Simulated assay, not measured.
Amino acid sequence: MEAIIIEILNKRAMKGQHGEANMSFWDEKMRGHWNGLKIPPYIGPGPKLGKGNRETCVWKPPKNGWFKINFDGASRGNLGQDGIGCSLHNSDETVVARRAKPIGMETNNRAKSMALVEGLEMCMASGVEKLVVEGDLTIVINGMKKGSILNWRLDALLNRALNLSKAFKKIIFNHIFCEGNFKADQLANMGADGIYID
């Protein structure tokens, strides 16, 4: 029942003048229609955070002997021309490897999931053993921490990422706000613009 309602609301909202990328508009539209439902899907902002958490979020290097991979996806619309970006650093903040790559038409969530897989493969090729993985999409990070994800569109990609993660001696998955993930974001946007960096 809820899936049918979502589909109807999406069709009604698509007739409007607002683009798909304007998520605050879509969120408000959807929230207005869910009041009478018993268990509405999660639509809206994340948990309430202390004032300034997002504004003070900065990228930090990993501990000595560890490496950090930041990954991101960028979309020119959702579906739109997408790109992925990954940036691997050591504890001295030196860039060990980085990648930007266009991936064609995808959703934003799939682009970010593809960036994770690409980043893990890049780390394996670089001989990394202890790895901190940072990304700004909570569904991906939480799925990797739990070892499973309940999203059929991302399932195959994240299962691939889970299998790749087993190749490292130690691996930690952390969520970071987009403000602290800017290095991977820049590379992903370059990929969405058709630029390859390897």
Rank of each mutant, 00 (worst) to 15 (best):
Y42Q: 15
C57K: 14
K63I: 07
G65W: 00
G83P: 11
T107L: 03
N53R: 05
L137Q: 09
S87I: 13
V58S: 06
E121V: 12
R54P: 00
N108Y: 03
K38N: 12
T138G: 02
H89A: 01
C123M: 07
A111G: 08
I43E: 03
L120S: 01
G119T: 05
H89W: 06
D136N: 15
E129K: 04
A97Q: 04
G127H: 01
N109I: 02
G104K: 07
M114K: 11
S113P: 11
G65C: 00
K101A: 14
N78A: 11
P40Q: 12
N35A: 13
V128R: 00
E118L: 08
L131E: 00
G46Q: 12
L37S: 09
G127N: 03
L137V: 09
G36H: 03
S126T: 00
R98Q: 13
N109P: 02
K48R: 12
T107I: 04
M105S: 09
Y42A: 15
T107M: 10
W59N: 01
A115D: 05
C123T: 03
K68A: 09
G44Q: 15
G135Y: 13
W59C: 01
I39V: 13
M122N: 01
S91G: 00
P62G: 02
G83H: 14
I39W: 15
H89K: 08
A97W: 02
G119M: 05
E106G: 03
N108M: 07
R110M: 12
L88A: 06
F71V: 13
E121P: 10
